Amino acid sequence: MFREEEYGMAESGSGGTEGVASGKSRFDDIYDRPDPRMYFRRLAPLEYEIPHHAQPVFRQAAAERAALDDGHPHRPAVLDLCCSYGINAALLNHDVTLADMYERYTSPACQEMSTAQLATQDKEFYAGRRRPDAVPVFGLDVAAPAVQYALEVGLLDAAFTDDLEQGPPGPGLRRALAEVGLVTLTGGGSYITARTFTALLDGARRPVWISAFVLRTVSYHPIVRTLAAHGLHTTLDVSRTYPQRLFTDVREQQFAVATVRALGHDPAGREESGRFHSLHYESRPGTR
């Protein structure tokens, strides 16, 4: 269930931790490769799983948002923030699972291919599994090689590398924002702040919903305030948390346990048991 009052409790004592990733391991090198094989090889031992949990949530949100625009000549597009190689787009619009993608990109046969060969096979792989209810998906990520690959194999309908933490959207992204009806996020909450959401919402031309999975080590409250200033009401799913991945080492676990406690969460059975956990926030116009 969604309960606004529980959201307020969870955010007590949030302080100034907006977008802070200090103490959390970084994986910058897996996003600058020409294809997603290293991404999946590196994350497989850590059991990275948040896109799997987001898959049904994003499908439902995309369907509900599209239903509002019946009669509009163009379906509202989904904008996936921090999209990397288009994993969320693949799961949203195709009959594949995250487990399928791990198996595909870590297989011995896949390792023998060149990037060009892999891209050719990926185009066929995803085209053959395209869902009839597929929606347009735009991707935004500063990792140019990753978004280029996702665009090349057909996972993204448009891709952008604008850094909205540093400046406003460029002409291409500004045009694309006019078609966006749903913004999705998994895992990027440690690195983007309210500045990014302000830039996106300032450029929106259609009612925008936001569906975000955010680590419990990050306060989402500054972003919620920004969304409220743009007329969006945010609710938190307090019925559960969503495991993200195993910790890389004891240092990272100690950071996570201390941080979630400082943010008013209980790490027992979650971070103390060895995994990052995320919360799911939904933001929609008006009140719910």
Rank of each mutant, 00 (worst) to 15 (best):
R3S: 14
R3H: 15
M9P: 00
A10Q: 08
E11V: 07
S12K: 14
G13P: 01
G16S: 12
T17Y: 14
V20C: 10
A21F: 12
S22Y: 09
K24H: 13
I30G: 05
P34Q: 07
P36W: 10
P36K: 11
R37Y: 04
Y39H: 15
I50R: 02
H53C: 03
Q55H: 06
V57H: 04
Q60W: 02
A63L: 11
A63R: 14
L68M: 14
G71L: 10
H72V: 07
P73T: 09
P73R: 08
P73Y: 11
H74A: 15
V78F: 13
L79K: 08
L79W: 06
C83V: 15
S84N: 15
Y85H: 10
L92Q: 03
L92R: 06
N93Q: 08
N93P: 07
T97C: 03
A99V: 12
A99H: 11
D100N: 10
E103H: 07
Y105D: 08
T106M: 12
Q111V: 00
Q111D: 15
S114H: 09
S114P: 02
L118T: 10
T120L: 15
D122K: 09
K123S: 10
E124H: 13
Y126E: 03
R130I: 01
R130H: 09
D133P: 00
D141L: 10
A143W: 02
A146V: 04
V153R: 03
L155D: 09
L155N: 08
A158R: 14
F160G: 04
E165D: 06
Q166P: 00
P169Q: 13
R175D: 13
G181L: 08
L182W: 07
L182E: 03
V183D: 00
T186D: 08
G188T: 00
I192H: 02
T193E: 05
A194E: 15
R195S: 13
F197E: 00
A199P: 03
G203R: 03
G203I: 06
P207W: 09
P207A: 13
P207M: 10
S211N: 06
R216G: 13
T217N: 11
V218I: 15
V218F: 02
S219D: 08
P222L: 12
T226D: 00
T235Q: 14
L236C: 11
L236D: 09
R240H: 09
T241W: 07
Y242A: 10
P243C: 05
R245T: 02
R245A: 06
L246C: 12
T248G: 12
R261W: 01
A262S: 14
D266V: 10
G269V: 07
R270F: 13
E272T: 11
S273L: 14
G274V: 11
R275K: 14
F276A: 09
H277W: 15
H277L: 06
S278N: 15
Y281R: 05
E282Q: 15
E282P: 00
E282C: 04
S283V: 01
P285I: 00
